[in-house]
Design a binder for these strands. Structure first.
Lengths: 324, 324
DNA sequence: TTTAAGAATGTAACCGGTTACATAATCACT
DNA sequence: AGTGATTATGTAACCGGTTACATTCTTAAA
C-alpha cells in the first residue's frame, strides 16, 4: 500500500502539498493538482483514513446502541440514522446490546476510547452512571425513541402520552368499558408514559382499569402471548386490550384465536409501532403509527450539534403519531 | 484527556513500561504493574484505541454490507455476526446498502481506506469488480446468505437447491400439479438456485410449471402482493404457490384473502426464511427455516481466517434447512 | 566474587496523515 | 525595476500509541 510520501515523490512535490491537493484543492495550483492526481492514479493511492482520523482526533463514527435490533421498528430507525450520518461523513458502529446492561456498558466505552465520537442510545438508560467517566464534561450522547426524562442529554421521542390518550379515545368511542393492558417493563419510561396517558384519558371518561387486567410484557411476541393467556383466564375478561407494541399484539392475537374468540368482535386489540406485518394480519391490527424515518435524522442532528459544539433551537424533539 | 505519557510521568516509569503493563502484564514486575494501575486510576486514563489501531495497522472493524436490514432475517444474521465478532475483539460497521449499487461500492471502499479489516457481504455481488483495487491480492471479503458461485471468496450459504427440492417434495406429496412461483430477481444467484432445485424436483415427478405461473418479485411484501395479483388473474390459477421468501408470501396471503379464497384449501402457500411472524399468520405459513444464528459465526470465522492469513478446513460452508 | 544469562526497563523510531510556520514564487502597482 | 501583498509550496512537529533495540538490574552458577 502506498502512502502520501510515495505520492509526493512520484508527483515531485512535498507531502504537505499532496495533502492539500487532496483535501483543500483550492489552496493549490491547477498544475500541481494535476500532477498529484496523476501520481495518485499511477499508484492507486488510497488515503489511510485511520491515520487521518487519528491525527484529527475524530473517529467519524457514531455508535448506535439498540436493545434489540431484530425488531423491525428499530431497523427502520437505524436506517434513518445511517442515511443521515453518511450524508455528514459519519459511519455507524453497531451496538446490539440485546437488552444486556453489561454489553451496553462495554460498548458505550468505545466512546471513551475514541472509537466513536458520539452515541445514539435507542433505549432509556444513560450508560455512564457508574462509569461516571463524564468527569464534568457533557458526553455526546443522544437518547432516541425510548427516552429518559432528563435535561442532561438531548432526546428525540414520540408523544407517547398523546398517542396513548388517542388509543383510549378510540376504545372509548367504541364503548369499551372493560379494558386490558399488556404493557412493557414497569420501570421503563416508555411504559410509564404510555400507561399514564392511557389511564388518564380513560379516567376522564370515568372508565377504570382493573388491577388484574394489567399485565407486564417485555415487548416480545412471546411475552404478549403469555400476557394474553393470563387475561383470557380471568372470569370477566376485558373486551379490549391495548398492547404497548405490535409484536406483543401479535402474540396476543395468536392466543385469542387459539381459544376460538374473534377479533375485534369478542376482543378488540390495539398495538403500537405499525409494523408492516400489522397490515397483513387478519384482521388488520389497529395500531399507533410512529414516523420511524423521522427519528434517525433528528437524533443525528442533535448528536452532531453536541459533537461540534453548536446549539440547536431545541434539545428535546417530540414527533407526532397517527392512529391507524 | 490524559495520554500514556501523562501516565508514565505519574507512575514514574517510561511510556514503554506503561504500554507493557497494560498490554502484556507478564513482561512487567508486580510492583510496576501496581504503580501503573494506580496512575491509570488516578488520571482516569483510557487508552486511545484510534492511536493503537493506527499503529497496529488494524481497525478491528468488520464492515457488514446488507441489502436491506429491516428484513428480520438479516437482523438475526447480523446479530450473530456481531456477537461472534465481539468475542474476537472486533466491532461492526453497519452498511445498509438499500439495494443500491453505488452505496454498496462507496461503503466497500472503507476497506481500502483502512477503516475496516474485512467485509461480510450479505448479498451476492463482489463489490470490487470495477474498482478492481484488488491489484492481485485477495481482499478479505466473505459472502454470506446470498452467495455467488465463485472460488474467489469464502461463502456461507444455505443449501438452497436442497431446500427448494424439499418444498417441491412437500407440494407433490399433497398432489399439487398446478404450481405457481413467486421468485426473486431473475439474475440473483439465490433465485437461480432455488428455482433450479424446485423445478428439477418437480420435473422428476413429471410436474411442469407453466410459464405464466412464474412471476418475479423483489423479496418485498409489496412485490409479493403484486405477483399474487397476477397469478390470481390467470384463467387456470395454480393450486399452490412457492414464494421465495416469507415477506413475499405475506403479500400473497393478503391478496388471496382479499379475493375471498382460502389457504390452503384453495391455494397452498409456502414461504422461505421462517420469520417469527409466519407462526402468527392465519393459517401458519409453511416455510423453509434457515438456521439464522448459524450464518454469522461461520462468516466471521471465515473472515478472520482471511484477515489473519490462516487456513480453515473449508472455505465454502453450507448450512442445512428445515421445512416447517 | 565473578560472570553470563535472563528479566525488567528505558530510549527513540515509527505508523501516515495534518497543519503551523517559514520560505519561495507570483502578482499588482508605483 | 522595486516593493509589498498575496498565493503556493516546503519543512518539520505532532497526534498517542507500539515495539525493536539498548541498557540496567537480578539471579544463579562457576
Amino acid at each position: 500500500m502506498s502512502n502520501i510520501r510515495d505520492v509526493s515523490k512520484v508527483a515531485g512535490v512535498s507531502v504537505a502539498t499532496v495533502s492539500r491537493a487532496l483535501q483543500k484543492p483550492e489552496l493549490v495550483t491547477e498544475k500541481t493538482r494535476a500532477k498529484v492526481a496523476a501520481a495518485v492514479r499511477e499508484l492507486g493511492y488510497q488515503p489511510n483514513m485511520m491515520a487521518r482520523n487519528f491525527r484529527r482526533k475524530k473517529s467519524f463514527n457514531i455508535l448506535v446502541l439498540v436493545p434489540d435490533f431484530s425488531n423491525p421498528f428499530f431497523s427502520k430507525v437505524i436506517r434513518g440514522i445511517q442515511t443521515t450520518a453518511r450524508s455528514y461523513g459519519y459511519n455507524i458502529l453497531l451496538g446490539d446490546t440485546q437488552n444486556h446492561e453489561d454489553i451496553e456498558e462495554e460498548m458505550a466505552s468505545l466512546l471513551l476510547s475514541n472509537l466513536a465520537d458520539g452515541i445514539i442510545q435507542l433505549s432509556a438508560r444513560f450508560p455512564f452512571e457508574d462509569l461516571n467517566a463524564s468527569g464534568g464534561r457533557i458526553l455526546p450522547i443522544v437518547n432516541c425513541c425510548e427516552c429518559v426524562e432528563t435535561d442532561s442529554m438531548p432526546t428525540v421521542s414520540l408523544d407517547n402520552v398523546g398517542a396513548a390518550r388517542a388509543v383510549a379515545d378510540h376504545l372509548i368511542s367504541l364503548d369499551h368499558t372493560s379494558i386490558g393492558i399488556i404493557s412493557g417493563p414497569p420501570d421503563s419510561p416508555l411504559t410509564k408514559s404510555r400507561l399514564s396517558g392511557f389511564l388518564s384519558r380513560l379516567d376522564e371518561s370515568g372508565v377504570s382499569v382493573r388491577e388484574d387486567c394489567c399485565v407486564d410484557g417485555d415487548y416480545s411476541i412471546e411475552s404478549g402471548a403469555l400476557a394474553m393467556k393470563e387475561l383470557l383466564r380471568l372470569l370477566t375478561r376485558p373486551t379490549a386490550v391495548f398492547c404497548f407494541n405490535d409484536e406483543m399484539a401479535y402474540g396476543a392475537m395468536q392466543q385469542i384465536k387459539a381459544v376460538g374468540l374473534r377479533i375485534p368482535d369478542d376482543i378488540a386489540l390495539v398495538g403500537f409501532d405499525d409494523l408492516p406485518y400489522s397490515r397483513i394480519m387478519e384482521p388488520s391490527l389497529t395500531t399507533v403509527s410512529q414516523p420511524s424515518e423521522g427519528f434517525g435524522p433528528a437524533a443525528v442532528e442533535q448528536l452532531l450539534a453536541l459533537i461540534n459544539g453548536y446549539d440547536l433551537p431545541s434539545r428535546h424533539i417530540q414527533l407526532s403519531f397517527e392512529l391507524k
